[in-house]
Design a protein around this nucleic acid. Structure first.
Lengths: 255, 255
DNA sequence: GGAACGCATTGATTTACATCAATCCATCCG
DNA sequence: CGGATGGATTGATGTAAATCAATGCGTTCC
């Protein structure tokens, strides 16, 4: 735990701060266009309240910024990039429990320490809040609480799906499910169709830790899918989905 | 899906109903002593509001009462017994995502259909609410919403632990983790110490489906633990934990 | 009492995936 | 440029747990 690259937040404190009568539209600009963000939930009139608690932080690829088991002091809202959330065993085995993309909240845990670690996959921007102030905000903005409940419910559904995947699916089914999930995530409102082209910012190792497999099995499975004409594996982090139906059949477990 | 033993709720509608000025203490008696229940969160003064929406239902062992994928019309609060929550693949493979005991809420899903199925392990009592009315209740009782968020957060933490278990732990580690979890759950406030004696209402099949193993592996692992002096396997559903430290070492992955 | 049933245990065998190991190929950097 | 580095791929081998199979054992119900 001690050799973890701990993040000093590279904080340029209050990178974007709004005064009482300042230009509110400038606050956390990414927030304002994301339907799931803090700002859009709270409403423009109260943004100045939020600004007192928030610090925007930029996190470089591979940098950890939440350490599993550390005191849970902060609360985050991802505004750009992809974050991997994980838990680890003492001997180093790792399970990535999810990838958080823009709009997601981190640090919901009710306990006083983080139940998971978090690390930037690519360059990530987050809005960071003190958890103390967060409690006050929740009292003042019921809509925010509603939004958090919605978020938690969605994550719970995702977690249940992942438990089914980890407990009962074969390697091929896991990879197929993953690719389809990623495709759906990339087709969220605002994103263009992309014709089955995926970018996947994470490494094979991350995918393996997410799917409960090894790097080699992930690699072999992708090669097999390529041989079956289901996908095309490009250079770098590009994968193109050639046949959604074939992957669907696989992912559903209809071998 | 169609041959599932669907529950007609065996409803004796409003088994316990309170009139405007009625004896409020009679409503859902189990609720009133559980710190996590709906009633105790809402407060006695508002119980009559709740009574308009709630129906107490008794569900016999093995009976399913939430069908995965069915329209999510109701919302439940378990008041006694144990419920298994699960997801299934078309070919019958099953993953139990959790066991719900008294105080737990079911049906949080924001979508309009249930993301999981639910079935009674032993005889179960629940308070059932219409989801439509639930939305109104949430507006009127912020404390309830806070409580639900807390519940969801706790479940999320449990789900993350389970993902680590399913993705990265060996069979022995899984069973050890399970036994320790069950022991901790049985030591919640109110329950007596019990001296390591566990009751486990679920079958080996349920445990297997919860841990992502087969019945045979669960059985073999328990036998092995017995041979190691870690546990004692009694008749029926009784298991006695003889050495918490040994199980701890196993569960943590220190092989 | 004794089939019949469901659940659990134990043994023999198979297998999907992990592990060990050898390239390959970009990118980085002195 | 050329060695070093980190990720990815592919091959050979090992193994933990699944599968297949037999038996036991308590309950239920004629």
């Amino acid at each position: 735990m001690s050799d973890m690259p701990s993040c000093q937040f590279e904080s340029r404190p209050r990178r974007i701060v709004i005064g009482a009568g300042g230009a509110q539209a400038d606050f956390c600009t990414t927030c304002s266009v994301r339907p799931t963000s803090v700002c859009s939930v709270i409403g423009p009139d109260d943004i100045s309240r939020l600004s007192e608690a928030a610090v925007e932080t930029i996190i470089p690829p591979g940098r950890g910024f939440i350490e599993e088991g550390a005191p849970a002091t902060d609360f985050f809202n991802v505004t750009s990039g992809t974050v991997k959330l994980f838990k680890a065993l003492p001997d180093g085995r790792r399970q990535i429990t999810g990838f958080a993309s823009p709009g997601h909240f981190l640090g919901l845990a009710v306990s006083d320490s983080y139940a998971f670690g978090a690390e930037a996959v690519d360059t990530v921007r987050v809005c960071r809040f003190s958890r103390d102030k967060m409690a006050d905000l929740l009292d003042d903005f019921p809509k925010l609480e509603r939004r958090l409940l919605e978020e938690a419910s969605n994550e719970l559904v995702a977690a249940q799906n992942q438990m089914l995947l980890l407990g009962r699916k074969t390697a091929r089914e896991r990879v197929a499910s993953f690719l389809l999930d990623q495709m759906h995530a990339s087709q969220l409102p605002g994103q263009e169709g992309s014709g089955g082209r995926l970018h996947l910012p994470m490494t094979r190792g991350d995918i393996a830790d997410y799917l409960g497999l090894t790097i080699e099995t992930v690699s072999r499975t992708l090669s097999w899918m390529r041989s079956q004409g289901m996908i095309e594996v490009g250079k770098g982090y590009a994968i193109t989905i050639l046949s959604v139906p074939k992957l669907d059949v696989l992912a559903a477990g209809n071998t």
